[in-house]
Simulated scan of single mutants.
Amino acid sequence: MRLRKGGNRHDAGERPQARDGSALAVELRGVRRQYGRGAGAVHALAGIDLALPRGTFTAVMGPSGSGKSTFLQCAAGLDRPSAGSVRLGGTEITGMRENRLTELRRSRLGFVFQAFNLLPSLTVEQNVLLPMRLAARRADRRRAADVLGQVGLADKARCRPGELSGGQQQRVAIARALITSPDVIFADEPTGALDTGTAAEVLGLLRRAVDALGATVVMVTHDPAAAAWADRVLFLADGVFAGGLEGGSPEQITARMAALTSRPGALAEAAA
């Protein structure tokens, strides 16, 4: 069952601030990403401007090849844009040295992927604590127990990933993303490998992370039902954002996608 929006959600004036005092969790200005040169160049991102407040849940949708994965990689510091500026939690990461960028990703960002990316040789607790270990921070087992409790896996700490269902493994991935209280959680098709019921449970956890914990979630998805859990849905095509939808239902999101992709030039017109 979908969690009701509102209630515990932070109002715009009550959102926790970033570490430099900024109320923005993610900010992209003029971001472009080009692969190759000359006539064969691919413009995966053709000039992205975006500002996402803290304590919000944003879904990014678009057809195959629209630039969704490139957007997420550039926004999360996993790939460097060809031009433009990216700020995370008020910190400018464009041009940041790789060792500092790696440290920032480990300590201030959380990631949830379709494939779970858990280490099979480690226990659930050890997988959850891995970001703290990689960031050279003390492995706080109380904190691990707390986040495992938040995702309903308090009794699975000593299990191995292979002993869990797919939905439980994704819950572990969410706990791992929460362990460092990150500025932003980036989710890349987090329900793509799950059945409908399990997907709803996982999306409910991401929704609760925003509403109850003040987290910021940026999710790339192809699924209108998943996108409907977000506060805002942004539509991406040909490397540019082509409109958005506030709090839409799966049916409304599907209709908007159909309208935006129904004929050549429609996306460009919507973005204008």
Rank of each mutant, 00 (worst) to 15 (best):
P16M: 14
G248T: 09
Q170F: 03
R208T: 11
R15L: 11
L3A: 07
T191C: 13
M61E: 06
G149E: 04
V26N: 05
E14N: 14
L3N: 01
D11F: 11
S181H: 14
Q126T: 06
G149P: 04
E269N: 06
T180N: 15
W229L: 04
I253Y: 04
E269V: 11
E246Q: 15
L78I: 05
L134R: 01
A255L: 07
R32V: 14
D20I: 05
A23N: 11
L205N: 06
V240Q: 06
G62R: 02
H43W: 09
P81C: 08
S66F: 08
A215Q: 12
V124A: 03
L164C: 00
A23F: 04
R160P: 02
G89T: 04
A230F: 01
A145P: 06
A135F: 07
E92L: 15
I179K: 04
D188I: 11
R158E: 12
T123R: 10
G239F: 02
D231I: 10
R9S: 14
R142Q: 12
D140C: 01
H10C: 09
T221G: 03
R143P: 01
R133M: 06
A226E: 00
A272W: 13
G36H: 01
G167N: 05
P264N: 09
G197L: 15
Q170W: 04
I185C: 01
A83R: 11
G62A: 06
D223Q: 05
L45P: 04
L267V: 09
R141Y: 12
P16W: 15
T56N: 12
V42I: 13
A255D: 10
L28K: 00
L50M: 11
P81T: 08
F71I: 07
G6H: 09
G62L: 05
I185L: 07
D183H: 03
R138V: 04
G65N: 07
L78T: 00
T198R: 11
R54E: 07
S262M: 12
Q114A: 07
G162I: 00
F116M: 02
A23H: 10
N127W: 01
D155H: 15
Q126W: 00
H222K: 04
T56R: 15
D155F: 13
S85F: 08
A268S: 08
T94D: 08
G65E: 08
M257A: 14
F111G: 01
C74A: 09
F71K: 02
L101M: 14
P81V: 09
T94I: 13
R105I: 06
L104E: 10
R29M: 09
R256N: 08
P53V: 11
F116D: 00
V42Q: 05
G204P: 06
G38C: 07
V31R: 03
R106F: 13
Q126L: 06
R106S: 10
A44F: 10
T191M: 14
S85M: 15
L129H: 03
Q114H: 04
T180F: 05
L52R: 11
Q169C: 05
S22F: 07
P16D: 14
A271I: 07
G162C: 01
